[in-house]
Design a protein around this nucleic acid. Structure first.
Lengths: 188, 188
DNA sequence: ACATCCGATGACACCGGATGTCATCACTAG
DNA sequence: CTAGTGATGACATCCGGTGTCATCGGATGT
């Protein structure tokens, strides 16, 4: 593979995370990351789109899982039930490594630029979710509405999970969040 | 005030918008903007946090309007009704200048960096909305849930309004969006 | 075993966004 | 008339991000 040590991408990713935690995201230059990984700045950008990208490589998996959960859900499931199921599947992935997730989120919460990227990734996830719902025959705008609001509920559940020090399963909080949403917006 | 022509900030903002529309956001350098405004690059950054900021100075008004709508709503209004009212108030502001809004949105939709900033601004709006709801006595997490999902519904209504070429009032679409949400997540 | 090719990396230059610093000018208060 | 204040210009600098070409090592084919 590479010319020197193997797994350049992995080394770069690890070095970046270490430095982000050690001294903070914007106290870390790309040159620092490359140096710790024993590579050059140019090589970093061959593996990651930008400095923030390191923290968001995992989201591709979420997209997969969400889309599959919707398409594999029983056909007689209501749109909102299918949405809930997809979000629970995503929650299942997220809660697998609580410590890593919390550390990563601490870094993100401390920097607006990282929140920007996270919101874009979640918006893309919502778009994919909406497309999957549409494929089930849900109306375009209903699908987008369910996807966007569902993901909003997920975000709140996630924030609560982080605030609760990740006690209890995130899946449970997601389910509760969707139920509370139904209760909160219900006609009196 | 200034040393030369007055209203440096306004001239910079106008020059920036013109150039973003004329040749695109990332084909425009800050030096270009400053030159067209008859000022220097350094002065641009004294008036705007960054190149994107020009497009988002108006959102402060939205925050005000949303917060006021919630605090001034009758005390017996349900949380979701207060939320809907706030979002309708925001829609009222947005739909006042359809052409400007559409042009601005076209620029934003063409550049991920701008979508990033927009999502952050909307997230901040959600936070303020949640705080206003909390001030009405709504539980913290219920407030956040309503604010985030309400704003998600607003985004979908806005996207639909843009897609519909801004025919019909945005306020109507927002109201419908909230009703459709209630219908979509209701227990069968 | 040898030559060849190809992908990954290094080296270097460069652009542009963003910031710090200091001088300078206009306006205002007294 | 002078001192002070705030906005601006001029200059230097850092760093993120990109283009370009050389170079190295492993894989491949004969």
């Amino acid at each position: 593979m590479g010319r020197w040590e193997p797994n350049a991408r992995g080394r770069l990713g690890r070095a970046a995370m270490e430095l982000y935690v050690e001294r903070g995201f914007d106290q870390t230059t790309v040159a620092d990351i490359a140096e710790r990984a024993g590579l050059t700045k140019r090589t970093f950008f061959r593996h990651y789109a930008d400095k923030r990208d390191v923290l968001f490589v995992g989201t591709a998996l979420l997209t997969e899982v969400v889309a599959r959960a919707v398409t594999e859900a029983p056909a007689d499931l209501s749109p909102v039930a299918a949405t809930t199921r997809a979000l629970e599947a995503a929650a299942g992935i997220v809660q697998e490594r609580p410590e890593d997730v919390r550390m990563r989120q601490a870094v993100i919460d401390a920097h607006v630029e990282l929140q920007e990227r996270e919101l874009v990734k979640l918006a893309a996830l919502a778009t994919d979710l909406a497309a999957a719902l549409q494929a089930r025959g849900v109306d375009v705008w209903t699908a987008r509405l369910l996807a966007e609001t569902g993901l909003a509920a997920f975000r709140v559940a996630f924030a609560r999970w982080i605030a609760d020090n990740a006690e209890g399963p995130l899946t449970r909080l997601v389910t509760d969040s969707m139920e509370e949403l139904a209760a909160a917006v219900a006609k009196p």
